[in-house]
Simulated scan of single mutants.
Amino acid sequence: MTTFPMGPALLFCPGDRPERFGKAAERADAVILDLEDAVAPRDKEAARKNLIAAELDPERTIVRVNPLGTEDFELDLAALAQTPYRTVMLAKTEDGPAVARALAGFTVVALLETALGVVRAAEIASTENVAALMWGAEDLLASLGGESSRHQDGTYRSVAVQARSTVLLAAGAFGKGAIDSIYGNIPDTEGLEVEARDAVASGFAAKACIHPGQVAAVRAAYAPDPADVTYAEQVLAEARHHGGVFNFRGQMIDGPLLKQAEQTLRRAQG
C-alpha cells in the first residue's frame, strides 16, 4: 500500500456548515471541507468566508475546490490564499499539466470522477504536486450517461470496478496514495466495513466518509487483527535469519509476503 499522510478515515464536511467543522475534525483522521458539490451555488461565497475563518489543523485538513476552468475555482483559490490550508482536493481532475500550473504550491488530491479523468489517471498521477488520487463513482457514471454505479445488492457495476482499479494502479505506479470512494448507504455500516476491508486489502491508503457515523467502520477495517500483527512480527523476525526464500509454518515466505507483513505493522502503528 502506498501511504498518504492523512487517513484512513477522511470525512467530508459542507463548507456552508461551519458549526460542523470542529466536530468533523475531532471525529475523523482528516476533514475535507467541501466547496463544491455539497454547497449550493447561492451558498458558495458564504462557504469561502467560513473557510477563511476556520481554525483547523492544516496538517489534517483538505479543501475540496471546484473544477479547473470555472469561475468558482478562481474564487476558491483566492479564498485559500487567505488561509494556512495547502492540501486541496481538485474536483473532476482531467489534466495533469494544468494541475501543476494552476495549483503550484499546493499538495493535490486529484479527484477522478469523469471518464476522461479516469482514462488519464496515469498522467495525472505522474504530476509532481499530486500526492494522491481519489475516484468518484456517481459522477463518473453520470459522465457516461449512466444511472447508478451499483447493482441493487450494493456491489459495483463492472465499469465502476474498472475505474476503481485503474485509479489504484495509476496511484501505485507513481508512488502516490489512493483514496477509495464514498459509501452512500449511510445506515449500512456493515456493508461499508466490508467494502473498506477490501479497500485496505487492495492497497487504498484511505477511504472517504460522508457521515461521522461511518468513521468507526472505516477505522475498524483498517486496523489489523491482533493475530495478524503477531504473525507479521514473528515472520519478520524469522526473516533476519535467512538470506532468501524460507519456510515458515508450512508456508513459503518470499519478498512480497515480507512487504505485506511490513505493511500490516505500519497499519498497526498508524
Score class of each variant (00 low, 15 high):
residue 30 A to G: 12
residue 30 A to Q: 05
residue 33 L to S: 07
residue 34 D to K: 00
residue 37 D to L: 07
residue 42 R to S: 14
residue 55 E to A: 15
residue 57 D to I: 10
residue 62 I to W: 11
residue 64 R to H: 11
residue 64 R to L: 05
residue 67 P to V: 10
residue 70 T to I: 05
residue 83 T to S: 09
residue 85 Y to K: 01
residue 86 R to S: 02
residue 87 T to N: 03
residue 93 T to F: 01
residue 104 A to E: 11
residue 105 G to A: 06
residue 105 G to E: 09
residue 107 T to M: 00
residue 113 E to I: 07
residue 114 T to C: 04
residue 115 A to M: 03
residue 125 A to L: 14
residue 133 L to W: 03
residue 135 W to V: 05
residue 138 E to T: 15
residue 139 D to E: 12
residue 141 L to F: 14
residue 143 S to C: 06
residue 153 D to E: 10
residue 155 T to M: 00
residue 155 T to Q: 06
residue 156 Y to S: 08
residue 159 V to F: 04
residue 163 A to N: 08
residue 167 V to L: 02
residue 171 A to H: 10
residue 171 A to W: 09
residue 172 G to K: 11
residue 173 A to V: 09
residue 178 A to R: 01
residue 181 S to P: 07
residue 182 I to H: 08
residue 189 T to A: 09
residue 190 E to K: 11
residue 197 R to Y: 10
residue 198 D to V: 01
residue 201 A to P: 00
residue 201 A to K: 06
residue 202 S to P: 00
residue 207 K to P: 05
residue 209 C to R: 01
residue 221 A to E: 10
residue 222 Y to L: 01
residue 228 D to G: 00
residue 229 V to R: 06
residue 229 V to S: 05
residue 232 A to G: 10
residue 234 Q to V: 03
residue 238 E to F: 10
residue 241 H to A: 14
residue 242 H to T: 11
residue 246 F to S: 12
residue 247 N to F: 02
residue 247 N to E: 13
residue 251 Q to W: 06
residue 256 P to Y: 06
residue 267 R to N: 12
residue 269 Q to L: 14
